[in-house]
Nucleic acid binder design. Structure first.
Length: 926
RNA sequence: GGGCUCGUAGCUCAGUGGAAGAGUGCCUCCUUCGCGAGGAGGAAGCCACGGGUUCAAAUCCCGUCGAGUCCA
């Protein structure tokens, strides 16, 4: 990146000089003319530990002083409420990873104006990339607050502020806190992230990076003229001040505690230390702890041990217990935000991330022997957070239920896992010593398919009973091995992004006027053809609803007035406000006047199902709880479905309740109001719950409200004007499409009536088959099934009896072949099972048998050989010979075998072939 | 969104193309003053469901339903 980018007036005017770090070689700005390094770890150690940088402040105090500093600075930033930690408005990330993420992609790209400009916010963020190092490094947190002041500038427009004021404000804020300004360095470090990039200054003091000032003005572009890390970038139409100040780091710097955890979670750590029965090593080994903390940013653990003059093992033993407690404190804080903001633990998407964190904590609590239930620790965290985030308290009940449910599930997984491992270990019994080692791929498989971490496998195996001594070697990089295995699977699926040709072509065409919003009940309209692109007609205005938000496109026709020709509209899509009517034929000229007609029945069905969707979500939220979030939806003519986040299966009772409530909302005939509202105002007024069905682009968004705002959603679909118009709503089924996501399928309006009739017919027909009244169907079916089972048993018993009786009969029919008693008979209608019984009994009495059961289209063959002939005649070979003639095949054991064939006319021939073979074999072996 | 595993007696699971099994629990009897324990016998299975391949499927293939788990 061009060094010119960092040629910032403020730095030059305030006595800063640009230097090159002696250690890492990067450039930085400083007031201290003798400074030789950039000041960042690992070039420098944490000199603030035990020696705070400024006056001690709590998290609440730091946050408040930051927000009010920027509210009252010359640029009067607007203070914003925090956004959720679940990035509901993004489809590329699950969790909110930075304050700027709140404004991506629409605000940063310039499509939507910012809610305020400039603005200041303290945004709780979650990053789970470094889960393994949490607790160990002393500075990593999964959940942290990123304080940011943002200014959104547009090229050609009036500039709010850019690099100069950004640095000025940052410098001013640090001075305001009382930081020694000579110790502050601004380090040049190009920033890259999420398809954007730009120059960046890292703000560092005493070894600690407190903030980053990003000047975001580049975007990824294959033809871009600027190259960073091998990727090409180009200048954007916007240029944005994206700053991130680590709230927790400021608190840490103000306290000078050994770790950031000691600064942020002192109370929780105290509780955990007490509960685990250990002592905080800060009390037992203060010198080691302080020294380690100061050096930890700059050195590896081995080096630190060396420097402190103790063994690595010893240092680990001192640190590891408290590191686990730090991690628990961190993770529970993270969970408080995730669960309160509505993440439902599951096995996919953001739910999996929640489960991952939950299970890590369960494991850590167990290893530390801490018996405080996890939910109680999360509640402790909420207790300290509630002053600044009162909304967290609303979710307390659900969190308790959720966490204990997850605990139960985890215990079950482990219990099952223990059985699996024990069984596997038993398989090693009696093997040679060098073979008693679980191979790596087996360990990976156990983790991948059963969720059993190798440490757990090792523990179970080491508790094995005597005689089994299985080795378990866990490679250091086990988890990254698993991860890389999965990323290899994915490589082949990478798709090349298709260049949006249509978008290019429609860019110059004005947005289509959407008559379906203005006249929701109209079916006919007139319009003028503006263009014809790739088989699609573009009009100046239209009634045709384009596919979107889970609602399929309208179909219908366009009639060219002058030519009196009708075109069938088969699909309708919207691209950047321009509506494309895909037609079967071509040959439409610009300027032609058309009259359009939409398929009214289809549209009405879609409309009813769409309104019904909102009603069902609303009812489900009422019945199941506030964590219900729409995870996908599809509307059709006959039925519709919604996927909702929920942590257990919807019971039959809940399903009935949701259905009843939904129909009650219909019967109350509530108003459904749809109107365009300012996006930022709507977000503030209704909250993020409006983004149930995804996030629409644009400055103004369409808001659909039911009744007294019982349900408010951003929605582009067509809707009834009153809930009564929806008609009956019938829930057809619920399905668990994923752990944590339930699908509800339902029909509305006429389609619902038809579904009910269909169901009724099904029941009526079933009842009439059994000749019972409908209400007796369940008991009748049960009785029939029981009787059927009884009869089946009886049948089997009788067959055994017949077989028994036949045995006596067949014995008299035995023929003698060279001294061997052979029973070779054809049994009409007999089945294989019955013949097996007979044959097996006869062979016990020293008869050799060949039985052929002759049925309508198929003959089955059973043969048995008495024990004394075992070495001479093989039953399996005998059956094969017989079945060959019958055009089939067979096989089995040497004593008894079965087979069959389809050439029933050759039964006699087959039997003779069998007897001949027996004759041959006996004579040969005698 | 993608991958892997599983569904067999009330429970825990073997069986991986040739006759549905074990342990445990249950029932009856014997032993015992009684309990624990031991002995003898017995009942209990749409082998999740629906297709296909095969002479033959719990077993192989496809689909559906249900459960578990890992990765992004």
């Amino acid at each position: 990146m061009d060094s010119e980018e960092y040629n910032i007036e403020y730095l030059k005017e305030n006595g800063f000089t640009r230097k090159k770090c002696e250690r890492c070689g990067s450039h930085f700005w400083t007031r201290d003319h003798d400074r030789k390094t950039c000041g960042d770890a690992p070039c420098e150690f944490y000199s603030f530990i035990g020696n705070p940088i400024f006056k001690e402040r709590s998290a609440d105090e730091i946050r408040e002083s930051f927000l009010s500093f920027f509210e009252h600075c010359p640029h009067k930033h607007t203070r914003m409420k925090r956004y959720p930690v679940v990035a509901r408005w993004r489809d590329d990330i699950y969790l909110n990873i930075a304050s700027i993420a709140n404004f991506q992609p629409f605000v940063t790209s310039g499509k939507v104006p910012p809610p305020a400009n400039p603005l200041v916010i303290s945004q709780p963020c979650i990053r789970l990339e470094d889960l393994e190092s949490i607790g160990k490094t002393g500075r990593h947190l999964t959940a942290f607050e990123m304080m940011g002041h943002h200014a959104f500038n547009k090229r050609g427009g009036e500039e709010i502020y850019w690099k100069n004021d950004t640095v000025r404000y940052c410098d001013g804020f640090l001075r305001h806190l009382g930081v020694d300004m000579d110790s502050v360095t601004y380090k040049e470090a190009p920033w890259v992230g999420g398809g954007n990039a730009g120059p960046c200054l890292e703000v560092i003091t005493n070894g600690l990076e407190l903030a980053t000032l990003v000047f975001m003005d580049l975007e990824l572009s294959p033809q871009g003229e600027i190259s960073i890390n091998g990727q090409r970038y180009t200048k954007m139409d916007t240029y944005i001040v994206d700053t991130g100040y680590g709230l927790e780091r400021f608190v840490w710097a103000s306290k000078g505690t050994p770790t950031v955890y000691d600064a942020i979670f002192p109370d929780v750590i105290k509780e955990l230390v007490n509960a685990s029965g250990i002592e905080h090593p800060l009390e037992t080994h203060p010198a080691i702890i302080i020294q380690n903390a100061r050096l930890s940013g700059a050195m590896k653990r081995e080096e630190i041990a060396n420097k402190l003059g103790i063994s690595l093992e010893n240092l680990k033993n001192i640190l590891e217990p408290i590191e686990t407690i730090y991690a628990i404190a961190d993770h529970t804080n993270c969970l408080a935000f995730m669960l309160a903001d509505g993440v439902v633990p599951s096995n996919a998407k953001e739910g999996y991330l929640a489960r991952l964190v939950l299970r890590r904590v369960f494991r850590m609590l167990k290893s530390m022997g801490i018996e405080i239930p996890l939910e109680d620790i999360v509640l402790m965290q909420i207790e300290t957070l509630r002053k600044s985030f009162p909304e967290l308290e609303k979710s307390v009940d659900r969190i308790v239920e959720l966490v204990s449910l997850e605990h139960r599930r985890y215990d079950e997984t482990l219990l099952k896992g223990e059985r699996i491992v024990r069984q596997m270990a038993r398989g090693y019994k009696g093997k040679r010593k060098e073979e008693q080692k679980i191979p790596l791929d087996m360990l990976i498989n156990l983790y991948d398919t059963h969720g059993l971490p190798p440490e757990f496998v090792k523990e179970v195996v080491s508790n094995q009973e005597a005689g089994v001594d299985v080795e378990v070697d866990i490679p250091e990089n086990f988890y990254s091995l698993v991860a890389s295995m999965h990323s290899e699977e994915r490589k082949g699926e990478m798709e090349q992004p298709i260049v949006e040709k249509i978008e290019e072509k429609t860019k110059s065409i004005p947005a289509t006027q959407k008559l379906y919003y203005e006249k929701p009940s109209a079916v006919d309209f007139e319009a003028t053809v503006l263009d014809f692109v790739d088989g699609s007609v573009i009009l100046d205005k239209t009634l045709f609803f384009p596919e979107g938000g889970g609602q399929p496109a309208d179909t219908g026709s366009l009639t060219l007035k002058e030519e009196n020709r009708t075109l069938k509209v088969i699909d309708v899509q919207e691209v950047e406000g321009v509506i494309l009517h895909k037609i079967e034929n071509s040959g439409v000229s610009k300027g032609a006047v058309v009259s359009g007609h939409i398929d009214a029945a289809r549209r009405i069905a879609h409309t009813k199902h769409h309104s019904a969707t909102h009603v069902v979500v609303c009812a489900a939220r009422e019945v199941l709880g506030g964590h219900i979030w729409q995870a996908g939806a599809q509307k059709g003519e006959k039925r519709a479905r919604i996927d909702i986040t929920h942590f257990k299966r919807i019971s039959d009772a809940e399903r009935s309740e949701i259905e009843m409530l939904a129909n009650r909302i219909v019967m109350e005939d509530k108003e459904i109001k749809a109107s365009f509202e300012d996006r930022n105002e709507a977000e503030q007024k209704y909250g993020f719950r409006i983004y149930q069905g995804g996030v629409p682009p644009g400055k103004r968004i369409r808001i659909v409200r039911i009744g007294e705002d019982e349900d408010v959603q951003a929605c582009a679909g067509t809707h009834c004007s009153k809930t009564g118009e929806i008609g009956p709503i019938k829930i057809l089924r619920t399905e668990r499409i994923q752990d944590g996501i339930e699908r509800i399928e339902y029909s509305a309006g006429e389609a619902a009536v038809k579904e009910i009739q269909l169901l009724e017919e099904l029941i009526r027909k079933s009842a009439s088959v059994l000749r019972v009244p409908v209400h007796k169907l369940p008991s009748a079916v049960e009785r029939f099934f029981e009787e059927w089972k009884q009869l089946r048993k009886e049948n089997e018993r009788l067959r055994a009896e017949i077989a028994e009786q036949r045995i006596g009969l067949w014995k008299e029919h035995a023929r003698d072949i060279r001294g061997v008693s052979v029973i070779a008979e054809v049994l009409p209608g007999a089945d294989t099972k019955e013949m097996m019984k007979i044959a097996s009994q006869l062979s016990k009495d020293d008869f050799l048998t060949i039985l052929i059961g002759k049925r309508e289209k198929h003959a089955s063959v059973v043969s048995s050989v008495p024990v004394y002939l075992r070495n001479d005649v093989n039953a399996s070979a005998l059956v094969k010979r017989v079945c060959e003639v019958l055009g089939g095949s067979g096989g089995g054991k040497a004593e008894i075998a079965q087979g069959g064939g389809t050439k029933i006319e050759k039964v006699k021939e087959a039997m003779e072939a069998g007897i001949t073979l027996v004759d041959d074999l006996i004579s040969k072996n005698k």
